[in-house]
Nucleic acid binder design. Structure first.
Lengths: 229, 229
DNA sequence: TTGCATTTCAAACATTTGTATGAAACTATC
DNA sequence: GATAGTTTCATACAAATGTTTGAAATGCAA
């Protein structure tokens, strides 16, 4: 068998098994059985189990990051170099949410693998995630261009909350479904993205609206009002 | 030695070690060495390693849940049976954030353990978390009383997003710190709670404000506008 | 003290798991 | 078709780990 076939078979089997049963449950022996290759093949082709997991995660992360940056670039071109803030947030959370939610995505191994990686955080994946900061800085820069003059702190918090809502929705979609007794439609990805983007942009405009509606009178405390003064 | 002393020593040692080094890194032998008890004591007193972890997590969860419900009850008494929505959200996210963030909390083993449990999700903990839905329903009910007539779906999404921001801030505080180059002050717990509560309530008022400020014109899509019609 | 129940202890068990080895099979180049 | 490089394979290795065991120690009541 050509060397690449074995490599690919291992990657595919590992991703499928990890996605279905989690990292803690799947051994190399499970993987090689599923891939119909020899046990030693994993170490021969990848060096170690951790490097196999890392390669899986890096591959999928790069795909997501590329999609994000493509959307961001498209938004910036649309806006003549300066993207609208909602388009930036959409580029940030859209690819991840589209990749991991939705009815047809149930069968997507890649998506289920990324959800699993988000729930069970194993050392090789944690190491990679730590490098994600550089990628996020590009979004912070775009946000700064979109909202010039705004305090950087507010930008970072907005970025952080956007990721919070997106990732938590993916991580805890089962719980939200159960809590809401099915009322929250987790298959309508478009609506979810809209919702996350809307709230993210609202978070970024804290202290922005001169006169707050009377329905929420006492919400602002502490350092949140700096922009109003 | 009295039986309870051994039990307590194991619990304390296990919580400390898990908090510092994570579940994957700590073996029963590490724990009994730290606790100065015999290896077999863990199985004698707890039955199994998983039951030990479960007991640790249940204990801390109960504490948090009790704090939450106390705050909720206080808010409802203050409002004469119907708590203000921002007080409800504050009762929901306040205890967790206060427990896990802040400068002096660095030394709190319990807090660090809960952060660890949030990052590394091991099977015994996952099983317990699945039962958390019942607890959250009490908050959903309070929210329903505070915002009568509002679509339940909106309530659940707001609750979900509030937890998203709180938990993600705890999980990813290191990354946010690094991304913002220290600009986001994660020691000012009060300000963080205010921020999360503010955004949560804003999320709940989607489609609530009759005329949206011109600064965010095109944010609402899809099913988000149902309340406006 | 005697007797009974609880607790502790050292040691062994039984797996599981990732990794290494060395020979065999295969592939491609000359 | 011989040779060198690559890949596969069965098997062994070594270490870690949760759990069990049966005896010894301890505590406690009668």
């Amino acid at each position: 068998m050509a060397s690449d076939q074995t490599r690919s078979a291992i990657l595919a089997a590992a991703e499928r098994l990890y996605a279905d049963r989690g990292f803690g449950d799947v051994t190399l022996r499970d993987i090689v059985a599923e891939a119909n290759v020899n046990l030693a093949a994993v170490n021969y082709h990848f060096g170690s189990k951790d490097e196999l997991i890392a390669e899986l995660f890096v591959t999928r992360s790069i795909q997501t990051n590329r999609e994000r940056l493509n959307e961001l670039r498209a938004a910036e071109e649309k806006g003549g170099g300066r993207a609208a803030i909602e388009d930036i947030m959409r580029a940030l959370v859209g690819p991840t949410l589209r990749g991991c939610l939705g009815p047809d995505r149930e069968g997507s191994t890649a998506a289920r693998f990324m959800i699993r990686a988000s729930i069970e955080s194993v050392p090789p994946i944690r190491r990679i995630k730590n490098r994600e900061v550089d990628h996020l800085r590009k979004f912070a820069a775009a946000m700064r261009r979109a909202m010039p003059g705004r305090d950087d702190t507010e930008l970072y918090w907005g970025l952080h909350f956007a990721l919070a809502m997106a990732h938590h929705t993916i991580r805890e979609k089962e719980r939200l479904l159960r809590l809401s007794e099915g009322k929250c439609d987790l298959d309508d990805v478009r609506a979810i993205i809209d919702r996350v983007v809307t709230v993210s942009v609202m978070a970024l405009t804290i202290g922005d609206v001169p006169s707050r509606p009377a329905t929420r009178p006492t919400l602002v405390h502490g350092r949140l009002t700096r922009q109003d003064l």
